[in-house]
Design a binder for these strands. Structure first.
Length: 646
RNA sequence: GCCGGCUUGGCGCAAUUGGUAGCGCACCGCUCUUGUAAAGCGGGGGUUGCGGGUUCGAGUCCCGCAGUCGGCUCCA
């Protein structure tokens, strides 16, 4: 009998897979076992590292505050957390003290020792840990806990991990835990840090008490930690809320209300370019542009079925003239009324309506965030009315359209999510309808060749959906477009068309939002481009900078010519010096600076300065204008010399 | 909605144990300004988010509200 320490001499091996199961290196193995190493750099190894770091933090917390009761402490993406029941929430000073204490524990090189216990033993040892006792109780009951809880009590048996002082053999701390763990705490090294603290509901339910959660990050090396921290800083620099203020794009006036943005002229330019382009593409794809009001009588949303489910996320109703009116939280009921405004023939199908519909949703005060979670938003919302036979083709058409549109805005990397019916009773319709609709969506999603992630229970109440998730320039994913298959609303609204045989048939309705919300997509684009938009979206595309005042008239001519051809071009006639003007407009991320002095005037040329500081001197005027216009029309990103085709 | 942090001129920040608000950028004015990221001088601008309280005295302490940030819950 040997163990993993004997089998693997490589110190980057922190655990092993025995017959497929990840275990501690201390586990005994036989020649019959299939044993593979788990290195600290592997996904499983990183999880073990992070989970072990969580244990160290918990131990440190209880050293600093022996009254703290333990919740759970699982690994998460890039790090870990641990929940504690403490009388007063953690302060920054507390976190500093905990960090210091945890550093000592890491340095001490405590060993993690696994020990199988009976339920009685576990209850006796953890008598002062009420949350752990609750988890032990749950283990007896049906396994309903989520994955994070399984970190504590998953698997076939109850185990406790002892942290042992390697010098004395004394058990200094212990925790109910499934494991596995690093061989010792020293392997956590210098690649960890606490990142923040926040409250979290016990077992994720707002009916339960709130615990105080400490988040941390942990990496195999100090360099990887630093790299992670730099990446976080980069993300912070791209934050659309910050860039929105710096670039004068939008604001959230307190006087209007939380989550209700106003777009300034520069943000307005971008929003209008987005809308114009998206409207044009929809029309090219066979959609008809429609428009619907912002409020309606309550009965409309009773008909659609929304009200019973979503009344608490709609703004409260206004009562007037014996009717209740709601601000709309969705557009589909109104578009249905356009469909049913007259008799429809099968010859008209697929019938596709599209609008920029502004909807209002009463998001809870704690969730409103920048442009990504607002209370008033504009959906690029479309509804296709089709026969059942046409539905697969229409879904495919919509998916291809959505993807091509996102690509036009510079997003290239996608995966799909298929949200299906869950077990709750909020989902209306028969099993067969759900199965049929889900099958249609799944087939199209699979045929796309994109990665497909299941999302059980994530569907809207009226039908399943495909959502498109896009990765941005720094690898974060955002939910963008949705395509929803709806067999319920056509029935509720009594929609029908006359078929070829003269019979009345019910159409299938397919909801689709390409950007989800224009506001959110705007926010995503800001972060994706870090505020340096492609030429066609840039609020100011060209700024003319004279080397000295004398050259203003010369530059004015070309700027004026560009302007007349539709280019957003300005001439900087302020009394700043040239260098200052370059700085000002570079910080505003203007893609093209046109500079001219005596040399250029004498030669009838201008000089380009690009966003990255590179230059291109002596460009003939006619050439400059032609190239700029072509780059705008081609929706090119222009950052450096060479990005603007000759 | 819940927990915690934060809120000082347009923006970013400062103000010793509570002693009566400053700085940089931006803005305005004047002078200057010929080649690729900040010319010089001067000026205006804040009842310190709002309401209440403690105090001789509150930007600093207490309470409530709003906004915002980080999470949790939620997200048609």
């Amino acid at each position: 009998m040997v163990d993993g320490f004997a089998r693997f001499k490589d110190r980057s091996v922190v655990a092993m897979r025995v017959n497929g199961e990840v275990t501690d290196l201390a586990t005994s193995i036989t020649d019959d076992d299939v044993v593979e190493p788990v290195t600290i750099e592997s996904p499983a190894g990183l999880s073990i590292l992070r989970h072990s770091a969580a244990h160290v933090i918990a131990q440190a917390v209880q050293r600093v505050n022996p009254e703290a009761k333990l919740g759970i402490g699982p690994p998460i993406t890039d790090g870990f957390y641990y929940d504690f029941d403490v009388v007063t929430p953690f302060t920054p000073e507390d976190l500093a003290a905990i960090t210091k204490e945890a550093g000592r524990i890491v340095q001490a090189g405590q060993r993690f020792i696994r020990r199988v216990v009976t339920e009685e033993q576990a209850r006796a040892e953890l008598v002062s840990e009420p949350y752990k006792l609750e988890l032990i109780g749950l283990k007896g009951a049906a396994a309903t806990g989520d994955d994070n809880e399984n970190v504590e009590v998953g698997g076939g048996e109850l185990t406790i991990y002892d942290n042992v002082n390697p010098a004395t053999g004394e058990v200094v701390w212990k925790d109910l835990c499934r494991g596995p763990h690093l061989p010792n705490t020293r392997m956590i090294g210098h690649g960890w840090a606490l990142t923040r603290s926040a409250a979290a509901y016990w077992r994720g339910s707002e009916k339960n008490p709130q615990l105080q959660r400490i988040y941390g990050t942990a990496w195999p090396s100090k360099d990887q930690l630093r790299e992670y921290q730099l990446q976080q800083e980069e993300a912070a620099k791209r934050d659309h809320r910050r860039l929105g203020a710096e670039l004068d794009l939008f604001s959230f006036p307190e006087e209007i209300g939380s989550g209700l943005p106003v777009f300034h002229p520069r943000g307005g330019v971008i929003k209008r370019e987005m809308e114009d382009y998206v409207r044009r593409r929809h029309i090219e794809e066979g959609f008809e542009y429609v428009s619907t009001p912002h409020v309606s009588k309550a009965t409309l949303f009773e008909t659609s079925g929304h009200l019973p489910y979503y009344a608490d996320t709609m703004f409260p109703p206004m009562r007037l003239e014996n009717s209740e009116y709601y601000l709309k939280a969705m557009n589909c009921p109104m578009q249905n009324l356009i469909f049913s405004s007259r008799g429809r023939s099968y010859r008209e199908l697929p019938l596709r309506f599209f609008e920029f519909g502004t909807v209002y949703r009463y998001e809870k005060s704690g969730v409103v965030q920048g442009l990504t979670r607002v209370r008033g938003l504009t959906q690029d919302d479309s509804h296709s009315y089709v026969t059942e036979e046409q539905a697969p083709g229409e879904v495919e058409h919509l998916l291809n359209f959505v993807l091509s549109l996102l690509r036009d805005f510079g997003l290239e990397d996608f995966y799909l999510e298929l949200s299906t019916r869950g077990s709750s009773d909020k989902f209306i319709g028969t099993d067969r309808e759900w199965d049929d609709a889900t099958t249609v969506l799944r087939r199209v999603a699979e045929a796309s060749g994109l990665e497909l992630v299941p999302d059980p229970g994530g569907a809207a109440f009226y039908g399943p959906k495909i959502s498109v998730q896009a990765r941005d320039a720094i690898g974060r994913t955002w939910q963008m477009s949705t395509i929803q298959y709806d067999f319920n609303q056509p029935a509720r609204f009594g929609l029908e068309y006359t078929a070829a045989d003269g019979s009345r048939q019910q159409p299938v309705m397919i909801h689709s939002a390409k950007f989800g919300s224009l506001e959110r997509f705007f926010g995503v684009l800001i972060e994706h481009y870090a505020g340096a938009f492609p030429l066609w979206l840039s609020p100011v595309q060209v700024v003319g900078i004279p080397v000295a005042q004398e050259y203003e008239p010369y530059l004015h001519d070309i700027i004026d010519r560009l302007r007349r051809s539709g280019v957003r071009a300005e001439l900087d006639t302020s009394d700043d010096r040239m260098q200052k003007k370059i700085r000002t407009h570079t910080k505003q991320k203007v893609p093209l600076l046109l500079i001219a002095g005596e040399n250029d005037r004498a030669a009838g040329t201008v000089s380009f300065r690009y966003r990255d500081g590179s230059q291109e001197n002596g460009v003939a005027l006619a050439n400059a204008a032609r190239r700029i216009q072509a780059a705008i029309a081609g929706r090119l990103q222009v950052v450096s010399r060479g990005d603007l085709p000759a």
